[in-house]
């Protein structure tokens, strides 16, 4: 079994390389206050070419390779980052999913206005708002997404009523 995710370690490397990205998925839900669990960090990076170069440097520092059922050692490169929509990476700090879109077709540009920055340790982390996390999971509509939705929706309700 691969090593456990160390969310903060990955976020620190991304920050050090100045990778513009949005934290989405389970970790975004957790940062928004939902008591859910996840075993990987999902991000949507800014697709700009210069940011892609910084992302490549970051994932190289993290010794990232693709999760490959055939066991091949495939590593990210500029071409893959520019063309593939989903990068399921295993890093020395645990799993990292780099996504071009979330939900059905929610791109970086479309979700960029539905985020806010959160302080996590010494970092400022740009995080998808909980309502957008819910929308992305409604669109994705996988079993694990449907399972999480009642908690996410109730968390959003309680956030709104408690002003958290």
């Amino acid at each position: 079994m691969d090593n456990a995710p160390r969310y903060l370690d990955i976020l620190e490397v991304l920050a050090r390389h100045q990778v513009e990205h949005i934290v989405v998925g389970g970790v975004a839900a957790i940062l928004e206050g939902a008591p859910v669990s996840t075993f990987d960090l999902d991000i949507v990076p800014d697709p700009a070419p210069d940011n892609r170069t910084r992302l490549l440097a970051a994932v190289r520092e993290l010794e990232a390779r693709y999760l490959d059922p055939a066991g091949r050692h495939l590593v990210p490169n500029e071409t893959k980052l520019a063309t593939l929509r989903l990068h399921q990476l295993i890093t020395r700090a645990g799993p990292l999913d780099v996504l071009a879109t979330i939900g059905k077709t929610m791109t970086y540009e479309q979700i960029a206005g539905r985020t806010h920055e959160r302080t996590v340790g010494n970092l400022r982390v740009r995080c998808l708002n909980l309502d957008a996390v819910i929308e992305s999971k409604e669109q994705a509509d996988r079993d694990k997404d449907r399972a999480a939705l009642p908690i996410l929706r109730r968390t959003l309700e309680l956030k709104r009523t408690s002003g958290s």
């Binding site: 940062l31 982390v125 009642p150 109730r154």
Partner: peptide, 29 residues
């Protein structure tokens, strides 16, 4: 969903929320 658990989570800072999640994955692994 467990409202008490959600309200407790909402009472934490972002750093603390991530620490809770990290603790869970560390224990599981």
């Amino acid at each position: 969903p467990d409202d008490a658990l959600i309200l407790w989570m909402l009472s934490l800072t972002s750093t603390e929320r991530l620490a809770v999640a990290q603790g869970f994955v560390d224990s599981t692994y």
